[in-house]
């Protein structure tokens, strides 16, 4: 394993999979970090494992349209799996002519998201899949903390009933400590991300807390 040093500290370079506890495979993961950090890449690495562990991922996007999301995620898709295998629930208030696996008219329509998820399960079944939510921060613009909390709680339990698990993104810049701690209760595993100089650092909070590692892409850097 490569070591990286600077004047301040040394961080081991690791992929997320190497640092996540082995029992985190089927548990819900929250990835929290600054808006501009590379936390999306960490979540995408976790999401891409969905193919290894079972099935093509489901994606709930409140920030990118379906097409924009597929573009961003394409470099993370393992060889031999077309990005078309993704089931994308697009809640970005897109213009009507956009194409999407399932669309919801606004991020406020949590019922619409739930229905799209049910449709996905009707079509593809469950077991070993990861479901990405990008991002909790956008849902919080449109619905109260209480309602979003109940929705995520139900999302996680529904995924778990069907043998799946979620990976969800949250911006750390725009949430107060109380709300953050409330959301943490929903996730057995929390990956905390921060930027330092030109690198992305992360650590994992689960049953215990790991030290900080420098993030290394799982399948080599395709970008």
């Amino acid at each position: 394993m490569a070591k990286v040093t600077n004047e301040d500290a040394t961080f081991e370079k690791q992929t997320v999979a190497e640092v996540l506890p082995t029992d985190a495979g089927g548990s819900d993961v929250l990835v929290i970090g600054p808006t501009l950090s590379d936390k999306d890449q960490i979540a995408f690495d976790v999401l891409a494992d969905s193919w290894e562990t079972g099935r093509a991922p489901f994606v709930i996007t409140a920030t990118d349209t379906d097409a924009q999301f597929r573009d961003r995620f394409a470099p993370f898709v393992p060889a031999g799996h077309p990005a078309e295998e993704l089931y994308v629930i697009d809640c970005t208030e897109q213009t009507p002519d956009s194409q999407s696996s399932c669309s919801v008219n606004s991020p406020v329509d949590l019922t619409g998201i739930a229905i799209c998820l049910s449709k996905g399960y009707d079509q593809y079944g469950g077991g070993g899949r990861r479901i990405l939510l990008d991002t909790i921060s956008t849902l919080l613009i449109y619905s109260s903390m209480d309602r979003v909390y109940r929705f995520l709680s139900k999302l996680n339990s529904r995924a778990s009933e069907l043998g799946d698990s979620t990976v969800q993104l949250l911006d750390s810049d725009a949430i107060d400590t109380e709300d953050r701690n409330t959301l943490f209760q929903l996730f057995p595993t929390v990956i905390e991300v921060r930027d330092e100089a030109d690198r992305t650092l992360f650590r994992v909070h689960g049953d215990s807390e790991t030290s900080w590692y420098e993030f290394q892409r799982q399948q080599g850097d395709h970008r």
Binding site: S106, A114, L117, Y121, R150, K154
Partner: peptide, 26 residues
């Protein structure tokens, strides 16, 4: 009211949408 109940949405894909809410989109 059917649209506030996301719990039911998780159980079934056949829940009817509300056209009035579709009107409010955007």
């Amino acid at each position: 009211l059917a649209r506030i109940d996301f719990e039911r949405g998780f159980e079934s894909a056949s829940q009817p949408g509300s056209e009035l809410l579709a009107e409010l989109s955007g």
